[in-house]
Simulated assay, not measured.
Amino acid sequence: MIRRNVLIVLALVLPVLVVSVVGVGGYLTFTRANDDPISRADAIIVLGGEHDGREAYGISLAEQGVADTVVLSDPYGQADSTMKKYCGKQTDTYTVLCEDPVPSTTRGEAIFTEKLAQERGWDHVIVISWRYHLPRAQYIFGQCFGGDVTMVAVPRTYNFSLVHWEYTYLYQLAGFAKAAVQGDCQNLR
């Protein structure tokens, strides 16, 4: 009888405890992730996601003279109107390149960044993504890119429900685990 009561209590308490730890840890790690200070770089890499102003933000940094190349991750396909607007754009001060990541993940984006860096002699890039994605993106770029990386969040707010935040934290944690299993991209360097 006592064993059964202990199991019932554990069945009720354990899920609440796990959700609480993931929620608090995720908030501190992902939602409150810090931007790096922006400094002159060889290129600005805008990671794929949603068209939430990230492409325009990356280009605005180039217009301010932060870099003369903007690379937009383009896993969206040829019919995407946002990418049509920016891909191939060239001015006197900057050029926009669009790359389809293979695989279509953050790892694929880090791989094409390393490839472009080797071809073009880049040592420092600025990577733009969601604030909550910055820690994982930094980890993956550390595995696959041999230069310096400045991580910068898309300037926006997130109006997610608590359930959506919990899912986001779990997704990011799973992405970290996947990246750890995949390991470094040593064959690219």
Rank of each mutant, 00 (worst) to 15 (best):
6 V>L: 15
97 L>I: 06
25 G>A: 11
182 Q>R: 12
87 C>Y: 08
40 R>W: 04
29 T>V: 14
90 Q>A: 12
15 P>I: 05
12 L>R: 01
176 F>H: 06
47 L>P: 08
26 G>E: 03
134 L>D: 07
148 D>M: 03
75 P>H: 12
155 P>I: 10
179 A>M: 11
4 R>W: 11
145 F>T: 07
10 L>Q: 04
68 D>C: 00
166 E>I: 08
18 V>F: 10
85 K>H: 14
99 E>A: 11
124 H>A: 05
186 Q>T: 08
114 E>W: 00
122 W>Q: 05
135 P>C: 05
180 A>K: 12
122 W>V: 05
130 W>V: 01
17 L>N: 00
46 V>P: 10
38 I>A: 01
37 P>N: 07
34 N>A: 15
110 A>D: 01
4 R>T: 12
82 T>V: 15
186 Q>A: 12
108 G>Q: 10
44 I>K: 04
11 A>C: 09
91 T>M: 01
102 V>K: 11
133 H>G: 03
50 E>T: 14
107 R>Q: 10
79 A>P: 00
32 R>I: 02
99 E>G: 00
142 G>E: 10
141 F>T: 06
182 Q>G: 01
96 V>N: 01
21 V>H: 05
180 A>V: 15
1 M>E: 11
153 A>N: 05
148 D>F: 01
144 C>T: 06
135 P>T: 06
8 I>T: 14
116 L>E: 06
103 P>W: 12
177 A>N: 01
82 T>H: 13
71 V>G: 02
125 V>L: 07
10 L>V: 13
116 L>T: 07
48 G>I: 04
115 K>H: 08
69 T>F: 00
42 D>Q: 05
78 Q>E: 15
75 P>G: 13
128 I>W: 05
40 R>M: 11
143 Q>F: 04
93 T>Y: 07
127 V>H: 06
154 V>M: 09
128 I>S: 07
46 V>T: 13
80 D>K: 10
26 G>Q: 06
124 H>W: 02
76 Y>Q: 06
177 A>S: 09
188 L>K: 00
125 V>D: 05
178 K>G: 00
85 K>R: 15
59 I>F: 07
96 V>H: 01
14 L>A: 12
